[in-house]
Every structure is written in C-alpha cells, then in structure tokens.
C-alpha cells in the first residue's frame, strides 16, 4: 500500500525561509538548506521549496538552494514560484529538483502544463492551485499569491489540469491558509473526487490531529504544512506517529 505523504514546505525569500499569515505579514525563520536537512532527518517524505519572491531576479537564489539541498537530502524535492516556461522547468530540474510546481503561470497559460508534461513527464509537473470559497461547494481560482480572483471554477480548472498532463495537484485553500483551524475538507473532497491524480492538501494545519483528519475524511495523497514545522511546534515524526496510531499508513 502506498503511504500517505507528509510534506514540509519551505517558503523562501531572498535565500531565507519565511512564513506569512494569509500571505501577509512575512517573517524570516532560517536557512533553507539546514531546514531541509532537519526535515529529512525527521522523516519528511518530500520537501517543497516555494520561491515567494519568484519570477525575476531571485530565480538564481532558489536554484543555488536546490543545488545545495540536493547534495545532502535524498527525498524528492519540488520547486515552485516563478516558473513560467519550459526553460525555467529545465533549469530547475537540472539544479536537482524532482518536480516543478506551476501556479499563476499555468492559469494564464495552461499549455505550459502540457508542454512540461510532454518533455519531462507528467510526474514532474505539480500544479499548485490557490482557491477561495464563493458559495456552497463552489470555489474560484486565484493567482499571484492569492491576490487576484480569476473567476475560474476550481473543479473545472483541476479537471483541465489533469487533462493537460499534470501529475499532481497541490490544493491550497486561501480561506484556511495560516488560520490553523485544519485543512479545508469540503474543498479537498470536491477536488479528490473530480480528478484521479494525487492531491496534496495545503493550507490550514494547526494541530497534530489535522493531518490524520485530512487522510481519514478525504482521499488526499499527501498533506503539506509550513509554519507548524518551522516554528517547531510539531515534528514530522510526531505527525506520522499520530497518523499511524489511527491506522493510516505512513512511512
């Protein structure tokens, strides 16, 4: 049986790990390579680097971080933020990433998903989706770090991502992100039943039992969190022990 994955996410800005609340109020917390190594020791199943300054001038910084991390962390690495072309994907993968995560750029140019999947394989392409509730069982997709509502229906969008060749969806709820009240279960359920590719739950983990709850209540394949792990409130191992005690298969 496939184990459920626990994924610490490192939001990196100018080469330092940071974590904001609802995408605002950013605070620095440390060296990304050291953080990744620490998570690796705790048993992280995968590590995500999210380059929040992204796009332009800082691209090289994150690639250096990935290069250094890949020399001593032997679990899959995913890199997101500012990836807007097949060349960006290639450079990121060559620096040592196993997967790239595309978000805003994919919404604005969906063919990017297909081009990436055709060249590097579906398994390399994770589509990050930021969404917010607009009504009962209805959500719309946002871009630019949750700032711009694209008025695109979430379910239509994730189905399209799958069809274009996405290997995975990392689903971030803007409503629950940073609030620490648990993952957005209704949104997760809706997306998991709409696609066959793995779905990563993101945004909202605030306590130990939130992870097991997401795995017990929805079909998500993995759960991602940033601040909980950064501020050392929980270790990856504690989360796994809790899941295991509830009958969830983890590594």
């Amino acid at each position: 049986m496939l184990a459920k994955r626990i994924i610490p996410c490192l939001d990196v800005r100018d080469g330092k790990v940071v974590k904001g609340v609802n995408f605002e109020g950013i605070k620095e917390v440390g060296d990304p390579v050291e953080c990744a190594y620490e998570y690796n020791l705790q048993g992280a199943d995968e590590i995500v680097f999210y380059d929040i300054t992204a796009s332009h001038e800082n691209r090289g910084v994150i690639l250096d971080v990935v290069r250094e991390t890949a020399k001593k962390v032997f679990v899959p690495l995913t890199v997101g933020g500012g990836i807007k072309s097949v060349d960006d994907m290639r450079n990121t993968l060559r620096a040592g990433a196993d997967k790239v995560s595309v978000n805003s750029q994919a919404v604005q140019n969906p063919q990017l998903i297909k081009e990436g999947a055709d060249i590097f394989g579906c398994q390399c392409i994770c589509v990050g989706v930021d969404a917010k509730k607009v009504g009962d069982n209805k959500w719309t997709v946002y871009i630019n770090g949750g700032r711009v509502d694209m008025k695109i229906d979430l379910i239509d969008w994730v189905k399209k991502c799958e069809q274009l060749g996405a290997g995975e969806i990392c689903l971030n709820s803007i409503d629950t992100d940073g609030v620490r009240g648990g993952f957005d279960l209704p949104m997760l359920k809706a997306v998991c039943s709409a696609v066959k590719i793995p779905v990563i739950a993101s945004g909202g983990a605030g306590k130990l039992s939130d992870f097991a709850e997401a795995f017990l209540e929805t079909d998500c394949s993995a759960a991602l969190a940033a601040s909980l792990f950064h501020f050392k409130e929980l270790t990856v191992q504690q989360v796994k022990d809790d899941c295991r005690s509830k009958g969830i298969i983890v590594r």
Binding site: M1, L2, E168, K196, I197, P198
Partner: peptide, 30 residues
C-alpha cells in the same frame, strides 16, 4: 487507483539478494 503510482511504498521481499543486506522488514522506497 491513482496513476502514476507515486509515493512511498513498502518492499515485499521475494528472494534473497545482496541489495537487501541490512534492511529491515518495513522498508519504504519512493
């Protein structure tokens, strides 16, 4: 099932092999 088969799964040994030296019964690989 979700395809690709992506993530950590447990090895079930079928025959002995030098590659398995020192491994335990509950080993997950990616």
């Amino acid at each position: 099932l979700v395809i690709p088969h992506m993530g950590w799964n447990k090895l079930v040994y079928n025959h002995g092999c030098p590659l398995f030296n020192g491994l335990g019964d509950e080993e997950y690989v990616y």
